[in-house]
Amino acid sequence: MGVGPGDPELLTLAAVHAIEQADVVATPLAREGGASMAAAIASRYIAPQQRLLPLSFPMVAAAAPRQQAWHRAADAVAAEVSAGRSVALLCEGDASLFATGSYVLLALQQRHPDCPIRVIPGITAISAAAAAATWPLALQQDQLLVLPCPETADALTGLLETAAEQSRVLALMKLGHRWSWVRPLLERRSLLSAALFAERVGWPDQVVRPAGDMEASERPYFSLLLVRQGWPDVLP
């Protein structure tokens, strides 16, 4: 289930009810023994008597360790369900958008097809950032393209050019270290005023600011950029 980007107030009622009714709360970890950001978001809704099931998902490029982690997680969740216990698997943001939970879902469907599953959506960092800045994401015939930030300036330039032609708003996820070269590119194209920068949306140290206010430097993994190069002809 999606628990939103960081603010506990942004959990849906469905997510809160599912957590409160679960026997076991599965919490994703980026490394063994680390802290779970998803668990931190949902902590106020987790009761002391509920058992936590830490699931480690290594942040590595190699395929095999990630696949093994997804399989282990699916097997662990299925084992709890087979024993008659309900499990709430927490996931930051939305459970279907660039989500670790999606891989566990696929692994469950493959390895444990009889395991009952319910996916509860959550508020995305994209939506929360736009709301915090009173920045409309899409209007009328606008297109909205959500994707990881490209790895090269040439790739991003192509995206920007196509987006301008198609009235397409770009939502670039996983900005992180790329901001050091993305900002100068936006400045050269006179697009800083058309872009919104956000990082750690929903957390106490949230940053949501016009892109021009942010210096070119490496930023946290959980940062994103919204770029609007035009507006509909008919507006209030």
Rank of each mutant, 00 (worst) to 15 (best):
V3R: 08
P5W: 02
G6T: 00
D7F: 03
D7C: 10
L11R: 07
T12C: 15
T12N: 09
L13N: 12
A15S: 11
H17W: 08
A26G: 04
T27C: 11
L29K: 00
A30I: 00
G33L: 07
G34I: 00
A35E: 11
A42G: 07
S43G: 02
A47H: 13
P48M: 07
L52S: 14
L53W: 01
P54T: 00
S56R: 02
P58L: 07
V60Y: 00
A64F: 02
P65I: 00
H71C: 14
A74Q: 04
D75G: 03
A79M: 02
E80V: 03
E80F: 06
V81Q: 05
S82M: 08
A83C: 09
S86Q: 13
V87Q: 05
L90N: 04
D94G: 12
S96P: 05
S96M: 08
L97K: 00
T100H: 04
G101E: 01
V104R: 00
L105M: 11
Q109V: 01
Q110Y: 02
P113K: 04
D114Y: 01
I117S: 05
I117H: 04
I117K: 03
R118A: 12
P121C: 08
G122I: 03
I123Y: 02
I126F: 15
I126G: 04
A131N: 06
A133S: 10
L137F: 13
A138W: 08
Q140W: 11
D142V: 03
L145S: 15
L145M: 14
V146D: 12
V146Y: 13
T152G: 14
T152R: 05
D154F: 10
G158C: 15
L159C: 14
L159H: 14
E161M: 15
T162P: 07
T162K: 10
V169K: 09
A171D: 08
L172P: 02
L172K: 03
M173I: 01
M173Q: 12
L175A: 13
G176V: 00
R178V: 10
R178H: 15
W179N: 12
W179T: 01
S180C: 11
W181E: 01
R183H: 09
L185N: 07
L186W: 09
R188I: 03
R189D: 07
R189G: 14
S190M: 11
L191P: 04
S193V: 06
A194K: 08
L196I: 03
L196D: 07
E199T: 00
P204K: 12
P204T: 03
D205W: 15
V208N: 05
R209F: 12
P210M: 06
A211T: 06
E215I: 02
E215K: 06
A216L: 05
S217T: 11
R219F: 13
P220W: 03
F222S: 06
L226C: 14
G230L: 04
V234G: 14
V234T: 09
L235S: 08
P236C: 10
